[in-house]
Design a protein around this nucleic acid. Structure first.
Length: 530
RNA sequence: CGCGGAGUAGAGCAGUGGUAGCUCAUCAGGCUCAUAACCUGAAAGUCGGAGUGUUCAAAUCCUCCCUCCGCAACCA
């Protein structure tokens, strides 16, 4: 196990507002980062914005702004959303920042000098009115501009290319030697069969047809084109090539750091093929893992602006709280597979897991401790009832399962391991029938043991869910009388940790939602975006 | 033959070789500490179809077919 982690999301493109799909990727990455920190590891978490390119240039012109003004406005929205979702990123990189642009220029120069980049001609379908190049697949069989629908012509422009042939063999070797590099594994097969085996083209890394990009020093009519600019954010953010490389040394070069990129399927190719090549060209280490997450569908069809089913996370969080949304994203959608967001699933998941199971368990337990023990959690007395041992073993087992799932980025499975504890605790109440024990003075010890065990089950669950439920876990601790300053992960292993703590019955952690009303409300939010 | 994913109980999903699972919904029962909650039990699937394919053993591997979805144009 490495002792330090560097984890990243892709940098998102600020051509429009972010939606729940971006939130999904960022929240899951955040959960992992928080999990690692909770376990006591150092974890540096980076996200950001990829701000160059023709589309930004065009959208800015349409909005009557300079490109920089335009992206500044959009990125403001990024900050707000990540703030709202309690994203714990350590840094936010913008590709328009000089700490990035200057280094990208140096990177380009180095590659050019080494002969990994050469000047040639980019040939493609060109739409004169749109001033845009398109690929074969983009123009389709009729050779029509996908933007304006008019016919396109074959055109050429001077461009720089990255020589992939220099690194193909070494990439294949890297795949072989690092089976966990790209997961899920089907993604790796896709890369090899679809892109590498048929023969990899060199990658175009500059453009002259627009100017909103990082100029190439050696030839300033060119700007650096998308991927060489975008992917390198992962190292420029750490100060690579700058005056101060301390972060870079610590979180990239040190072998004790595990480097993890989280990304979506549509950009797998660039992360899995070109990024390792760029790094090798620079003589740098490659990431340990690239984890490809699935897409969030809106009930059978992909979320898209034209279909009017884009979900805006803001009103959702405003109404249901950040924890509800974070929990839904992490639990409902198996990380690594496609999943869906629907109002029905959302309301059901929150009600069943958070309100009925966890929230209600806390509520009933605190009530009983108040009623039977004047609010003081009884001391741990060992295994006093026939069911104590079973509950304790289930807790121990669930902690182990949780840890091993989470370490392997199986976040959805990690959460279900915690919910096993909650379910078992609810059952334990029925098994031990505390209300019956309370009527018999001789059973006082058993009753005390039941309360202690219940409190511990809730405490452990709350701790394990802390990376997900960033607010509710603290509220849960507070109800159990835990001093938030004096609690740490390792306390879950101490059965006596809760002895004599005084509970505080507070608000319901997750009030039950009215199905019909809330489903209709969320549906109206989605339609409102049409 | 473009690439990829999916097809498992009424709905939504998990499950990659070893007696078919989870959540919800349904029905019956229990309990009363609790947020009409919680607990127990039942009914419900020939795991898309085909193959006298591989194997001691297949939802899981192989071959073929069918259907749906995503990518290929806004969009993680």
């Amino acid at each position: 196990m490495k002792k330090r982690f560097y984890i990243t999301t892709p940098i998102y493109y600020p051509s429009a507002k972010l939606h729940i799909g971006h939130a999904y990727c960022t929240v899951l990455t955040d959960i992992f980062a928080r999990y690692k920190r909770l376990r006591g590891f150092e974890c540096y978490f980076l996200t950001g914005a990829d701000e160059h390119g023709q589309k930004i240039e065009k959208n800015a012109a349409l909005a009557g702004k300079t490109p920089q003004e335009f992206v500044d406005g959009i990125v403001e929205g990024f900050y707000k959303l990540w703030d709202l979702l309690k994203i714990s990123n350590n840094d936010f990189i913008r590709t328009t920042q000089t700490r990035h642009t200057e280094v990208v220029q140096k990177i380009f120069s180095k590659m050019l000098e080494q002969g990994d980049i050469y000047l040639s001609k980019y040939k493609g379908w060109y739409c004169t009115p749109c001033e845009s190049f398109w690929t074969d697949t983009q123009v389709g069989p009729d050779h029509i501009c996908p933007d304006c629908g008019r016919p396109v012509q074959v055109a050429e422009e001077e461009a720089y290319f990255f020589k992939t042939q220099n690194y193909v063999d070494s990439l294949m070797k890297f795949y072989d030697e690092n089976p966990k590099f790209l997961t899920p594994e089907s993604r790796k097969n896709e890369m090899i069969n679809t892109f590498i085996k048929p023969g990899l083209d060199d990658l175009c890394v500059s453009r002259t047809s627009f100017s909103w990009g990082i100029p190439i020093l050696e030839n300033p009519k060119h700007v650096i084109y998308v991927w060489l600019d975008a992917l390198t954010n992962y190292i420029t953010a750490l100060g690579y090539g700058s005056g101060n490389e301390s972060l870079f040394k610590k979180f990239w070069e040190d072998d004790e750091t595990e480097i993890i990129h989280i990304l979506g399927a549509d950009i797998t190719r660039f992360h899995a093929i070109y990024w390792p090549m760029f790094l090798e060209s620079l003589g740098l280490r490659k990431p340990d893992r690239e984890f490809v997450h699935g897409l969030l569908m809106m009930k059978d069809s992909k979320m898209s602006k034209s279909k009017g089913n884009v979900v805006d996370p803001f009103p959702l969080v405003e109404k249901y709280g950040v924890d509800a949304l974070r929990y839904y994203l992490a639990r409902e959608v198996t990380f690594g597979q496609d999943g869906s967001f629907t109002p029905e699933l959302f309301v059901e998941r929150i009600n069943m897991d958070l309100a009925n199971s966890l929230g209600n368990l806390l509520n009933r337990t605190v009530s009983m401790i108040n009623k039977y023990f004047g609010g003081e959690i009884p001391q741990y007395l060992g295994k006093k009832t026939a069911f104590d041992g079973e509950l304790e073993s289930l807790i121990d087992l669930s902690i182990k399962r949780y840890e091993s799932f989470m370490d392997d980025l199986k976040i959805t499975e990690g959460i279900t391991a915690v919910m096993d504890i909650v379910a078992r605790a609810n059952k334990y109440i029925d098994e031990t029938t505390p209300w019956a024990l309370a009527k018999d003075e001789d059973k006082k010890e058993e009753l005390a043991s039941v309360m202690n065990h219940l409190a511990r089950a809730i405490f452990v669950s709350g701790m394990l869910l802390k990376p997900v439920l960033v607010n509710a876990s603290d509220l849960l601790f507070a109800q159990l009388g835990i001093n938030l300053e004096k609690v740490s992960y390792d306390d879950i292993f101490n059965p006596s940790f809760l002895d004599r703590k005084v509970v505080n019955k507070g608000e319901q952690l997750f009030p039950r939602l009215d199905n019909e009303v809330e489903i209709a409300y969320i549906a109206s939010l989605m339609n409102g975006n049409k």
